[in-house]
Write a protein that binds this DNA or RNA. Sequence first.
DNA 1: GGAGATGATTAGCA
DNA 2: TGCTAATCATCTCC
Length: 403
Amino acid sequence: MSFSICVAQCTDSLSATMDDQARIMQSIGGVSLAGHSVQGGMALPPPHGHDGTDGDGRKQDIGDILHQIMTITDQSLDEAQAKKHGLNCHRMKPALFSVLCEIKEKTGLSIRGAQEEDPPDPQLMRLDNMLLAEGVAGPEKGGGSAAAAAAAAASGGAADNSIEHSDYRAKLTQIRQIYHTELEKYEQACNEFTTHVMNLLREQSRTRPISPKEIERMVGIIHRKFSSIQMQLKQSTCEAVMILRSRFLDARRKRRNFSKQATEILNEYFYSHLSNPYPSEEAKEELAKKCSITVSQGVGSTITVSQVSNWFGNKRIRYKKNIGKFQEEANLYAAKTAVNAAHAAAAAVQNSQANSPTTPNSGFQMKDEEFQLDSAESKNTLLSNMFTGGYPAPCYQSDGRIQ
DNA sequence: GGAGATGATTAGCA
DNA sequence: TGCTAATCATCTCC
C-alpha cells in the first residue's frame, strides 16, 4: 500500500471520528489527532483537505501538547499506565501506527537506503577466493592437495613427496576444521541475536510503531555487524594458511643430508658407471627406490627421482672440477663394486653348475647386469690401478661430458 | 665460529 | 627436457 493511499484512507477514517478521538485523547491526556500527532519525535502533518482548524486553533493545540509534555512527569505511574492501556486499546491505534510506520519508512529509507545496498567488499571477495582456492572454504576437496602440489611445483621439488604433502594436508585440515567451527559459532550467535532482537522489536511494536521493514533493516544491520566479525575470522584463517605455506616451502628448501647408506648407493652407481654417469629415468627411479628402502632421514623419509638427478648433477660437476680429490673415493668404490661383482659371479657360477640355467628376474635385474658389466670394468681398472698406483681419469667429450 | 661438504635452485644452452 | 655451471643455503666437523 502506498503512503498517499494509506494516508488518505486513514485520514478519512480519522476525520470521520474526529470529535470522538478528540474526546478520548483529551480524556486520557494523549495527543489530539485533530491538529498534530507527536509520536517518536515525529509530527504528523494534517491531512489534505481535512485541515479542519484555523491558525489560532493550531496554536492552541500546540500549546496544549506542550503543556501536557511539561506536566507528564507530574502524573503518577498508575495514571500513565492507565492512559497507556487506554491508548493501546483504542480502535484507531492500528491505523495510527500504520500511518506512523509509513512516515518512518519514508524518512528512514532516504537515510539508510544507501547503507543497505553496499557493493560486495572487494577485500572480503579476495579472502573468500583465497579460502576457496586453498580448500579451506567451500566443499572439501582433498584438504588442499592441489595447493600442496602447487606449492611443491613452485618450490621446484617433486610432486611425489607424499610425506610432506600429507603433513601440509593435515595442518590445512586442522585450519579448515577450526575455521568451520568458528564460522558455525558466529552464525549460531548471529541467528540467536537476530531472533532475540526480532522478538524484542515485535514486543515493542505493541507500544510503538515498528514496521516489518524496520525489523528487516535491523536484521540487516545485525548481519552486517556479524559479517565484519566473520571477515576478521577469514583474515586470520588466510594468514594462518599463508604461514603454513611459507613454512611448508621453507621446510622443503631446508637441506638435509642423505643418509650414509643412500650416499653409498648413489656413489656405487656413479663410480661403477664412471664412463657414462647418466642414469636413465628408470635407473633413477630404481636408485630412488633403493635409497628410500635403506635410507632413514627421520621417520618415513624418502629420496625422490629429482633428488637423484640433483645428486648426479652435483656429483658430475664436482667430480669433473676436482678429479684428484675424488680419486681416493673412486678407488674405494671401485674396490667395493669389484668385490661385489666377484661374489655375484661366484654365486652365478655355483648356481649354473648346481641348478637350472635360469635365474630369477627382478625389476632391477637389467640394471644389475649393467652394474655387473661396469663392475667388471671397474674391477679390471682397479687391478691395473693396484699395479700402477692410480685411477684413470675419465676423458671428456667436446661437449664436456665424460666419455 | 669458520671452513668445507652437500643438497637445492636457477639461468642458459642444445 | 635434461644437462651444465654458478650460486645459495644449510649441515657437519673441527
